[in-house]
Design a protein around this nucleic acid. Sequence first.
DNA 1: TTGAAAGCGCTAACAC
DNA 2: GTGTTAGCGCTTTCAA
Lengths: 334, 334
Amino acid sequence: MSEVRNNITISDVAEALGISKTTVSRAISGNGRIGEETRQKVLTYIKENNYKPNPMAQGLATQRTYNIGWVAPGDSSMAELPFFQRCMSGVCEIATTMNYDVLISLVSEGNVTHLKRIVENKKVDGVIMGRTLVDDKAVKYLKKSGIPFVVIGSTHEKKVIQIDNDHVNACREITSILILKGIKKPALIGGHLIHVVNESRLKGYKEGLESQGLPVNPELLYLNNVSERDICKSVDSAIAAGTDCLICMDDGICNIALNKLRKDGISVPGDVKVASFYNSEIQANHQPAVTTLQYDPKELGNVACRTLFKVLDGEKVPEKTLLGYEVLLKGSTF
Amino acid sequence: MSEVRNNITISDVAEALGISKTTVSRAISGNGRIGEETRQKVLTYIKENNYKPNPMAQGLATQRTYNIGWVAPGDSSMAELPFFQRCMSGVCEIATTMNYDVLISLVSEGNVTHLKRIVENKKVDGVIMGRTLVDDKAVKYLKKSGIPFVVIGSTHEKKVIQIDNDHVNACREITSILILKGIKKPALIGGHLIHVVNESRLKGYKEGLESQGLPVNPELLYLNNVSERDICKSVDSAIAAGTDCLICMDDGICNIALNKLRKDGISVPGDVKVASFYNSEIQANHQPAVTTLQYDPKELGNVACRTLFKVLDGEKVPEKTLLGYEVLLKGSTF
DNA sequence: TTGAAAGCGCTAACAC
DNA sequence: GTGTTAGCGCTTTCAA
């Protein structure tokens, strides 16, 4: 029945071939000198007999687990964003090619107990954080622990390897473009600033205004919107302040804003234009489609994972790696 | 720096306390007889000195990994459904309480190589499958491998532990209710029947009709819709056939159908009523809200994980566990 | 180029 | 109730 789960050990291989375990081990790992002939003999034998080294034993001997930890947000509202799924899938993809597996750690609201456990229990060789908050307990813990780790996103914490999209430039660019296309009073409907990414987006927005000679008008700046109610209120105020374009800081905000406008009978782009700093399916399917920034989360996961492996190999890596973006101009700003 | 990662071993503890490793081991595991006094002594010592057994060594000695595998769909369209996130979070929750961790395995379209690897490499003690197809390669492999596993969803495969919602009864009930509320020609816009759940939903729909003395009208039955185009065509045909209520097999279909109706200027529930066999945020936020079935995916994950642990402990478990549902009657069918 | 032997940290007979 | 001992399956000095 369980013929697929192999139970043949390195000793079996050694015995069958009339050589020592050491030699078999060397043939497999490539460490140490070994005759090409014996090497081939071993390699073919283990292939034919489907021998797989036991990772527990390997791990015990070498102090490696062949696992990396993936830290995802535990609070459902965040966790369900396709962004994290795609990142994770990018991480898994690379991990697999390196013969590593990915262990999940759900961290909600600063509760790092699980993360702590997998680190202290030595269940992972390194960790990738799916997101970062401005004051991130998990990052602080990881730094203190000494385990190699990489974060997706940005942090103010020093000496942390970060992989992120170039949000500041992306947001600056899309803001400038909108202004060049004739927008006079772009209003920003922003999310909570505990997310570093929102800080960056805010910065990009401001730089965009500045680059086009526009002031940062407090009447057009609505930050820290969390609930649907917050957003609706901000939209009302922005409209009252005479905005000609609502720039939403992310897709969630954008969808709520869009619904709100429709409910109020305000037409897009007729009465007011709409753009978003982050893309999602829903916006792409919206009529008219929404002008937005586009990133590649899976690539983010890929790069984060590759970077972590470099760190594990003792290679030097840049503290910050910025990935690209695309500006998608659509009907919502025509 | 890495003061948090402990490196103290069972021998250190034994030596410090002037007792043997065995005794320490016993104090921790609770296996074998041990004096209450020594037990306490050990327990306090390891707590104070933050000793953690090395799982690799434990694993090597006991042949357990303290990991379970979570098999999620690798194709993004599926993977991003909140359903899987919530299930996974339910699984992690229980696993954590049992001192287990969760290893991810992404399986796309019958490609079981990664799953195979984690099983053959003995990186997990058991596996939970996040979904099942009608002819599921992964399930077949797992059966053959002999590793304990549990599937979320249903399968036709024999001797497989399944945890599922009671889709047949749920769909029968909502269909009956709609008919009792006056619907005469409910049309089913169905998804692909490679998903066992869709078979069950179809079955429930038919039973619902039957229970109210209505025939299964082929003109009102649209199955195997995959693309947006499929769905739109089906909606057109159903409307042309004079349906008075579109029943969508899942939330994805429902959203597309809703958009389509709006675009065509067909009002809900005025011109046609709409219901769905699966709930999602978007439908809850739709105006009017959509009548739908509601399940609890996290609970599904909880139960699946608890069941797997029973299997691992050698306990007998039912081959099929069915969880409940709720019918949410909303404005879309008034 | 190959092998013997020690050891990674823990568990589990089996003695005492 | 506690200790001795022999592994679990692999890597890695150190010799040969």
